[in-house]
Amino acid sequence: MTALYIFLVLMVSQCVFSETGKLHLPSEPCEVSDIDCVSKATQAFFYNTSDGIPEYDIKKLDPIVIPSLEKTIEKLNLNVHYKNVKVTGFKNQQITHFELERETKAVQFKTKVNFTAEGELTIELPKISKSFAGTITIDASAEGGAAYSYTVKTDDKGVEHYEAGPETLSCTVLGEPTIELSSDLKAALEKDADVQKLLADYTKHAPESNKVTVCNIVKTVYAVSIHNIRAAAKVLPKSAYFKNV
């Protein structure tokens, strides 16, 4: 029995080490208060799993394609449609804040990210039945955040795992994003008299409108980041993450 017990312990340990290596977590768990360790572990996880790991249900993070995003500027009766937006840069996000409360089982973290988004763009003026299509490139910096609670679940093999609850996402745009429209779209907008009438009003709303677009992108990609954290937690035991939690 003693030999069998030792053999089983070694087998489990090897499996845990193997999965930890595949998911690029440190060989030793972090102290919750060790922000340097937590930062390095989280950043390494996002970077090294950014291509996705289908066997663990970890989705591709960078580049990531957002099929569609919608935005309405009601004051201008303007609808904006984004399609097939390719976003790059999220594998390099850097932790700026991390907090785990043992008593309330609440987690909060924030990361800074510099990213580029490229996709198709359609600007629609529904009241006069006009639309203009082309492409758009966005370069932006933002701080994204996620807050969620966690529980500890024991699987059918008696191994404890973290399980994250529903997240609340936040976003703060850092600086002014750079927006570039394709030359054909710019030319069409410049030539249209109705668009030119709206130009002065649009200029007033553009900074806030651009921030809305940036944060829509950030929150969409952040949701995938949290999904991947959840997926990894289903694979790795609780003990692989933190000490004394």
Results as ranks from 00 to 15, higher is better:
residue 186 K to G: 14
residue 99 E to T: 10
residue 150 Y to Q: 01
residue 228 N to D: 12
residue 138 I to W: 04
residue 25 L to I: 10
residue 185 L to Q: 01
residue 35 I to H: 13
residue 36 D to C: 10
residue 170 S to W: 07
residue 119 G to P: 01
residue 153 K to A: 13
residue 71 K to V: 06
residue 202 Y to L: 09
residue 133 A to G: 13
residue 139 D to M: 11
residue 27 S to K: 15
residue 79 N to A: 13
residue 209 S to Y: 07
residue 165 G to C: 07
residue 112 K to D: 04
residue 208 E to S: 14
residue 60 K to W: 06
residue 230 R to F: 08
residue 144 G to M: 03
residue 3 A to P: 04
residue 154 T to N: 06
residue 106 A to C: 08
residue 80 V to H: 07
residue 37 C to F: 05
residue 36 D to L: 12
residue 1 M to L: 11
residue 9 V to W: 12
residue 70 E to R: 12
residue 24 H to D: 00
residue 155 D to S: 05
residue 232 A to G: 10
residue 108 Q to W: 14
residue 178 T to M: 09
residue 186 K to S: 14
residue 6 I to P: 07
residue 243 K to E: 03
residue 196 Q to C: 09
residue 229 I to G: 05
residue 192 D to M: 06
residue 143 E to H: 10
residue 73 I to N: 06
residue 154 T to V: 15
residue 82 Y to I: 00
residue 144 G to I: 02
residue 189 L to N: 01
residue 73 I to C: 05
residue 165 G to W: 06
residue 174 L to P: 01
residue 225 S to Y: 09
residue 182 S to L: 05
residue 83 K to H: 14
residue 244 N to P: 05
residue 82 Y to H: 07
residue 71 K to G: 10
residue 128 I to T: 09
residue 83 K to L: 08
residue 240 A to M: 08
residue 227 H to E: 01
residue 235 V to Y: 00
residue 85 V to P: 01
residue 99 E to D: 13
residue 210 N to T: 11
residue 149 S to H: 13
residue 221 V to I: 11
residue 78 L to E: 00
residue 126 P to L: 04
residue 182 S to V: 06
residue 149 S to E: 02
residue 38 V to C: 03
residue 183 S to M: 05
residue 29 P to S: 07
residue 105 K to Q: 13
residue 159 V to H: 05
residue 125 L to K: 04
residue 115 F to T: 00
residue 103 E to S: 15
residue 167 E to I: 06
residue 52 G to P: 07
residue 205 H to W: 10
residue 82 Y to K: 00
residue 64 I to W: 06
residue 161 H to M: 02
residue 221 V to E: 00
residue 64 I to A: 06
residue 157 K to S: 11
residue 194 D to C: 10
residue 175 G to C: 07
residue 54 P to T: 02
residue 188 A to W: 06
residue 182 S to T: 10
residue 162 Y to P: 01
residue 82 Y to C: 04
residue 146 A to Q: 03
residue 173 V to T: 15
residue 13 S to H: 11
residue 188 A to H: 06
residue 142 A to W: 02
residue 161 H to V: 04
residue 159 V to Y: 09
residue 46 F to E: 00
